[in-house]
Write a protein that binds this DNA or RNA. Sequence first.
DNA 1: ATTGGACTCATACTTTCGGGTGATTTTGAC
DNA 2: GTCAAAATCACCCGAAAGTATGAGTCCAAT
Lengths: 158, 158
Amino acid sequence: MFGKMFSKNKLVILYGASLAGILLFLKWLEFRFVIMDHAFEVYIGVIALIFTSLGIWLAIKLSKPKTETIIIEKEIYISKPAGDFVPDEKLLLTHGISKREWEVLSLMSEGLSNQEIASRLYLSVNTIKTHSSRLFEKLEVKRRTQAIEKAKRTGLLA
Amino acid sequence: MFGKMFSKNKLVILYGASLAGILLFLKWLEFRFVIMDHAFEVYIGVIALIFTSLGIWLAIKLSKPKTETIIIEKEIYISKPAGDFVPDEKLLLTHGISKREWEVLSLMSEGLSNQEIASRLYLSVNTIKTHSSRLFEKLEVKRRTQAIEKAKRTGLLA
DNA sequence: ATTGGACTCATACTTTCGGGTGATTTTGAC
DNA sequence: GTCAAAATCACCCGAAAGTATGAGTCCAAT
């Protein structure tokens, strides 16, 4: 705040000083040369140019920069604290679901396709299909989405 | 583009015109009055002031507005509140998800097929496909299972 | 009055899913 | 060692899901 004020005062002082300096220069010119008829227009022109540029310079220096604030919202998802959800052995048994089948179910619930699950588990897609088929039978559902829904509802998945 | 160029040319013309005009005015003054000894300094001062303000005006008109860009990264933590079936309007807005799309998403998460969703909402299967497609785009996912997963993780669904 | 978004539906096409069937190999229990 | 369950994989086929594109209606904001 004070820095800026000082800066502005400084500019005003500079402005005054340069004005005085130029006047002196002109006075000196008056002594040295006779003002010729057509030199006067040139004279005015030079002064005009000088002060125009001075004005431009002042304006640039004094103008406040417009501040544009851009807020970028960065989404951060909170990962579930239950990182490794251990399958409840008893729950698995009640449905007769095997470990491998539960693994497939788990990856299914993460939104992976059969192909992706196969790659993840180093198996063939056909195997995943077999597992998922049996899984659906045991869960008495017809689709993977239903399987996920039922699994979560019954506590089979987190 | 051409508008701006024209504007600048116009300013230059105005500038030259005013300069010429002032010179004429001074010539006229020369005829009317004898230039007094001390009037000269005042004279110069007036010219200086006029052209300084002209310069300032020019600078303001011609200079691109200074923009100072401040980028603030705001981190938004998204957790999923337990309970409410009601879609959080704000959350929907952040992804640009429409009400209808959310309905489809909701029924999806219950394990319904597109046909079942269509029947439930008295719509055509194609419409459901359109909604789900747009939904997947907005959620940046490729499958319904992923959509469900992301929706639950981000609190879009209970 | 025009524009734009949301919603609706359609057609055509590709990909994935799921069912059905059968087969081989591991593995653990008896 | 035998035997059953689990796990692995294959092929086919129909159904469902998803993509791409276009288009018509409605409604609200300009």
